[in-house]
Design a protein around this nucleic acid. Structure first.
Lengths: 155, 155
DNA sequence: TATTGTTATACTCTATAACTATA
DNA sequence: TATAGTTATAGAGTATAACAATA
């Protein structure tokens, strides 16, 4: 039963890529949005010589003086062996310091140095400014909605 | 000018971690949501022996027969050297095949094999089912809104 | 016995330089 | 001269096993 015309050429060329199916997935969109923001974030943190993970650690230590390595790991989803170098690096730069934990001699409480406090302040200010830009195409109401819906996904 | 009481103990312990500042950032929330979905996605694709990148490639080839390596790279944000092995792997599993490009002898058009068509169909069905679960706590209207807002961020 | 922090190490992912065949 | 695809390789990120000190 030969057809009078071919339904598709055997070796077609693709003009514009159809991403329709992937774009219908929340995961794809969340990842794309995340990567877009992270890209700019990295550029803005570079002057402070901070990667995103460094910024996150400084911010958490700033708001949680005395936080332990384990607590940082749990909060940021980092495995303990991989945190060791990150902490050592910030300590070497004299941005953070380890103090004895009040009631657990195995652990150390992490604190910002005076320099660390100042750097964290500046970096958080930059992050907040970037936040305004990143959400430039969103109304304040849309931004609030987006945060709420994202948290619904992962909480 | 000594104060009559200390404003904070020198070595406090952190009971519960305050993530308030990070949670105020769209990037942090988008990344957390993305990771939460990706985690489940990986588990569901494992039976097909597909990672997310493999699934994305199969889906794009399915909907864009004849797509080139370069077009896959541009769409998925993968560098050409890193795509070579991914394509070779899918080709070795006889899920995809390379055919001559209609008007560029440097390039090859990628197509799904019969097996590839079937696997892509099943995997996309699984992805769609997962999508429903991932958005279980969202109403259809909220889901639609979330997609729109995420696309506003990265487009 | 379990947990904190650590070392060593392996594996995956991502990035850069350089090459060929063709446009 | 520029682009598609490839090779080789380096670097960053992430993972597991095992250990000492302490709970």
């Amino acid at each position: 039963m030969p057809s009078s015309r071919k339904s598709a050429p055997p070796n077609p060329a693709v003009e514009t890529v159809d991403t329709g199916f992937l774009e219908s997935l929340i995961g794809y969109n969340a990842r794309r949005a995340s990567l877009a923001i992270v890209e700019v974030f990295m550029v803005r943190m570079a002057p402070y010589d901070l990667r995103i993970v460094d910024f996150s650690m400084l911010s958490l230590i700033a708001h949680n003086p005395g936080i332990t390595s384990r607590q940082l790991c749990a909060t940021l989803g980092i495995l303990p062996p991989n945190l060791v170098g990150l902490i050592a690096s910030l300590e070497k730069r004299e941005l953070i310091e380890r103090r004895p934990h009040p009631h657990d001699r195995r652990a150390a409480g992490l604190h910002l140095s005076a320099q660390g406090v100042e750097l964290a302040r500046q970096a958080e200010q930059t992050a907040a400014a970037l936040e305004t830009e990143a959400a430039a195409r969103l109304t304040p109401s849309e931004r609030k909605t987006l945060m709420r819906l994202l948290q619904k996904i992962y909480q």
